[in-house]
Design a protein around this nucleic acid. Sequence first.
DNA 1: TATGAATGAGGATTCATTCAT
DNA 2: AATGAATGAATCCTCATTCAT
Lengths: 208, 208, 208, 208
Amino acid sequence: MTRRSTTRDPERTRRHILDAARAAFAHQGLDGARVDAIAEASGVNKRMIYYYFDDKEGLFLAVLEEIYAELSAAGEAMDLAAPPLDALTRYVDFVWTYYHGHPEVIAILNNENLHGGAHLARSLHIRELERPFIDKLARLLQQGEEKGAFRPGLDPVTIHITVIALVYLFLGNNRTLSIFFDRDLSTAVAKKSWREHIQCSVRAIVTV
Amino acid sequence: MTRRSTTRDPERTRRHILDAARAAFAHQGLDGARVDAIAEASGVNKRMIYYYFDDKEGLFLAVLEEIYAELSAAGEAMDLAAPPLDALTRYVDFVWTYYHGHPEVIAILNNENLHGGAHLARSLHIRELERPFIDKLARLLQQGEEKGAFRPGLDPVTIHITVIALVYLFLGNNRTLSIFFDRDLSTAVAKKSWREHIQCSVRAIVTV
Amino acid sequence: MTRRSTTRDPERTRRHILDAARAAFAHQGLDGARVDAIAEASGVNKRMIYYYFDDKEGLFLAVLEEIYAELSAAGEAMDLAAPPLDALTRYVDFVWTYYHGHPEVIAILNNENLHGGAHLARSLHIRELERPFIDKLARLLQQGEEKGAFRPGLDPVTIHITVIALVYLFLGNNRTLSIFFDRDLSTAVAKKSWREHIQCSVRAIVTV
Amino acid sequence: MTRRSTTRDPERTRRHILDAARAAFAHQGLDGARVDAIAEASGVNKRMIYYYFDDKEGLFLAVLEEIYAELSAAGEAMDLAAPPLDALTRYVDFVWTYYHGHPEVIAILNNENLHGGAHLARSLHIRELERPFIDKLARLLQQGEEKGAFRPGLDPVTIHITVIALVYLFLGNNRTLSIFFDRDLSTAVAKKSWREHIQCSVRAIVTV
DNA sequence: TATGAATGAGGATTCATTCAT
DNA sequence: AATGAATGAATCCTCATTCAT
């Protein structure tokens, strides 16, 4: 498990640390994660964490920035070239698939919210990021509106947050929801069902 | 602000500890919160925390159980006696108002999800709780369906989670959303706007 | 060496820590001294150091304050009831004997000067201390002047610092002086000789 | 302020390191000074410190030896060609001016004493140094004695240490003395006054 | 029921030093 | 001669928890 980076490869060392940190922060949070454990898991000398990231918070911020950069990059990869309703379906699917495939993102973002977004606010890189999700969604809504398929005046940010909310909460709070409502929401069936519910809901929200 | 409970009042001591713990867990999470700080804030000797709650996790569970009990009790207080669409509006308002008035609930539940719902799963009290929200919502959807105002076959749990998602994510992730989308979502205007968006959305989802 | 304080005796615990700290700071300085070593030497759980003194600097300050308190108390014990010249001799002897018997005081005060008197400046207790050395010396100089034995207008603080200088530097810098001037100043003979030199010098300074 | 010595200039590199080290040791002591900080301040790669001075202690010793060499050189520059009393004044002035202009010398020598003169004792260069201060002072005392101005049998080392004591302690312990005696001794007036006091005192000590 | 004192394992971080180039 | 990367042993300090009263 512990990979030894015998060769002198700064980029690789950084990579190993970031990967281990991401997993650790996702599972135990900023406060629960242990620097020792991250070092151990990354197969890198503990000292290197401080060499590259200053301190635990710096490491957390680096993870956070990477998450947002990936989020932004994911938007670039999304292809919505299709008739409005189909594109809308694709779009929702994309968001669902993204968070479903990156559950650690949810945990880490929740953690950042717990801390009032303090790290993110201090970040210099976040501001420079593009938000392709919004741009592409904006164009989609525009086209749908022009074709008379969608309601006029829809705000892409609002719609995007709506989709995120429906995806994110279901996935991120799956355990407590399951327990409280006494219904296992972690099964493939429950997920499929919820995914369809999101599709229907979003369609209902944007259509006339 | 540190209340000294010199008098021997068990119930009051428990209360003080729970209140301080709730605030602490909401602000720093289970791992970030400090037993010392909780004792200090509650004006109670640290030893008492162990006397009443065994350990930190026991205290967290107690807070969690109280939150769910209050959640359940809040459902009881909700009055949906009105025509379906009006009742629906009231219902959404109720959920919004509840979480808006209890932001610490969101933080603590997120924390419990971070830990995979481990505490909740162990709780004996949770199972016994009624879920009045669901029951009342079920009746409402039933009535709406009978009157031809709502779609048939709506699942109250699904609808409830939908509303929670739209409320909870906006409130709980307000900071990171604001930063990432470069739009201050914490203003009264932004909140009002989002609240209306939820109302419209839910209506669109349940209506034919 | 390691005394175990099995009994619960706060005062004794504090005492043990302070004693060990004093020795440690005297030998390795604030930065060189190790908290672990102090705990070990005092036979007290390391955690207690932080319990009683907050941190290493707090411990250093406590040592410093104790040193000054003892310095002040030593002044009280000094009896100068004698004819001026005899009293002067006694006084110089007292200062010499004090520092000679408390070499750690010199090391610690030097350390505090290294840090620009930062700790002392923050101390609240220092200001309240009496300076009996000065008061008694003032009276002595006054009497000597009246009897025509001493020069008029002598400033007690100046004279006191003079005596301290002659005592303190010889004792505190004994090693480097010995090496540089290639003459062993640590022998009993050298000390006796220097002590007499101080007596003569001070007498020369104050007499007409 | 960090000078980059991109060019390969061994002497310059050594110089930069020594300068930075001297300042660091003067301000934080041997234990408090950080090798990293010294490297940073000297604009030289940290590895070079080990290349030129073996380790931290070696660097400290190098600084120490330089200090003593300068001290010795300063003695050479001192010109006491004047009538005994005038020469004595000049001499005291010289010592005062020297330490006043090189306050870091005091801090570093104190540090060396804290460590029991261990580094100095191991030094090979110290033994070879001339002590022109002593030689010149010896001649001065000799002349004064011959002219009947000074007491016979004065020991130049004793007198020199006396002067150093009066200069050194006032300057080196200025902060703690000021605080303890509640009198600001760092002002120009206080310094001038003390300097005159030394002059008078030394004259009183050596004259008949 | 309540409290101040005590504990030991562990936590983040720092340090002087060395390696590989 | 010079450098960025790497190391492991410490170092200060914190934490949840328990003891003795």
